[in-house]
């Protein structure tokens, strides 16, 4: 039976950069160390479940998606190229799986939820979250939500997921130039919305 003993993580691994650590673990995984794979993916569990949940709107489904994505990732790990980060790679698998599930659910709805009910649930959850956020964050998130999907996406990947331009380009399947111009446009739109708003200056902290 496999087990993960985090305290056994060699000191050398702890002092490595993230990429070096990934490379070292990948080497172990390719030689058959399954616990090393779990060690590799564990830091990403919560963030990936959050992403899946934001798409499928169900925490249990989200957890299953991430579990499946990890298994599927392990199957293809021998082909993983270290030029893209593990997180970016798993993120793409999770997004694809979530899309597949949404398509399946559309075709075979188990418990049909009306649009009104869904909107009510979304609004309640969004309200509860806002209570926990600072006034500035809550204000800015409202503005981001007004942007078109392509601009929201780049903002989320850049600032929430903290991905590089290259990683965003990989996730979106476009070139870095496109990422930069979308991000630029997204920020210009945000700035205009905020500056047109009386509260803008205060909320941006430029008073």
């Amino acid at each position: 039976m496999l087990s993960i003993n985090k305290s056994n993580t060699p000191t050398k691994l702890k002092t490595m950069t993230l990429r070096e650590r990934e490379a070292a673990l990948l080497k172990k995984i390719r030689s058959g160390d399954k616990a090393a794979y779990v060690e590799l993916v564990t830091p990403f569990r919560e963030r990936l479940i959050r992403k899946a949940k934001s798409m499928v709107k169900d925490e249990d489904d989200a957890e299953d998606i991430v579990q499946d994505a990890f298994i599927s990732g392990y199957r293809s790990i021998h082909k993983f190229r270290a030029d893209s980060g593990i997180y970016t790679w798993l993120y793409r698998i999770v997004v694809n799986r979530a899309k597949d599930l949404l398509t399946k659910k559309k075709k075979n709805p188990e418990k049909p939820i009306t649009e009104q009910e869904q909107q009510f649930v979304d609004e309640r959850q969004s309200y509860e979250k806002k209570l926990e956020l600072s006034e500035e964050s809550s204000y800015l998130i409202d503005k981001i939500n007004l942007l078109d999907e392509i601009y929201r996406q780049v903002i989320e990947l850049r600032y929430f997921e903290e991905m590089s331009y290259a990683e965003i380009a990989q996730v979106l399947g476009c070139n870095q130039g496109t990422v930069k111009s979308r991000l630029f446009k997204a920020k210009e739109l945000l700035k205009q919305m905020i500056l047109n708003d009386e509260k803008g200056e205060y909320n941006l902290g430029t008073k």
């Binding site: 959050r50 926990e132 956020l133 964050s137 600032y159 920020k187 945000l190 700035k191 941006l204």
Partner: peptide
């Protein structure tokens, strides 16, 4: 304004990430 927006986005998303996670 760009700098202020950049800083706001970083603060906001860090806050949002904390709540979401």
């Amino acid at each position: 304004d760009d700098r202020a927006l950049e800083c706001s986005l970083i603060r906001c998303m860090s806050d949002y990430r904390r709540v979401e996670i």
